[in-house]
Amino acid sequence: MADHKYQGGCAHVTVYADAEPIDNHECHCNVCKSVTNQQTTHVVFFNHAELKASDESNMKRVPFNAANPDGPLEICLCKDCDAVLMLDDRQKRIRVAVPNIMGYNPAPPAASYHAFWDPSKGYPKPDDGRPVYDGLRPDFVWPPGA
Rank of each mutant, 00 (worst) to 15 (best):
T40H: 03
K5E: 06
V132D: 06
D80S: 03
R61Y: 09
P143N: 00
E56P: 02
K79P: 01
D127F: 11
D139E: 06
E20W: 04
G145H: 03
V43Q: 09
N65Q: 00
D70E: 07
F45M: 11
M59T: 01
T36C: 08
D70Q: 06
A11V: 03
A83K: 01
A107G: 15
N37C: 07
Q39T: 03
P131R: 01
S57K: 06
Q39E: 01
L73D: 00
N65A: 09
L51C: 08
V43E: 00
Y6L: 12
Q38F: 11
A107M: 11
K125A: 15
A97C: 14
R130M: 02
A115H: 04
V15M: 10
S120A: 14
L73Q: 11
D89R: 00
H4C: 01
H4W: 05
P119Y: 14
A11G: 06
A53L: 09
Q91K: 08
A115R: 02
N24C: 14
V13P: 06
S120D: 15
S34H: 08
L85F: 14
T40W: 08
C10L: 02
P63W: 02
P138D: 02
L87G: 07
Q38K: 06
G103T: 12
T40M: 13
K121A: 15
P144K: 09
P109W: 11
A111G: 11
S112N: 11
I94Y: 10
A146I: 10
Y113F: 12
K5W: 05
A19Y: 00
T14M: 04
H42G: 03
I75L: 13
S120N: 15
K92W: 07
P63I: 00
S54Q: 01
K125Y: 07
L73K: 04
R130E: 04
L73M: 14
P106T: 10
G71L: 05
D139Y: 08
P108S: 15
V141R: 14
D134P: 13
K125C: 14
V84D: 11
Y6F: 15
A97W: 13
H114Q: 05
P108W: 10
F140L: 13
P126N: 05
E20S: 09
A83F: 09
A67W: 04
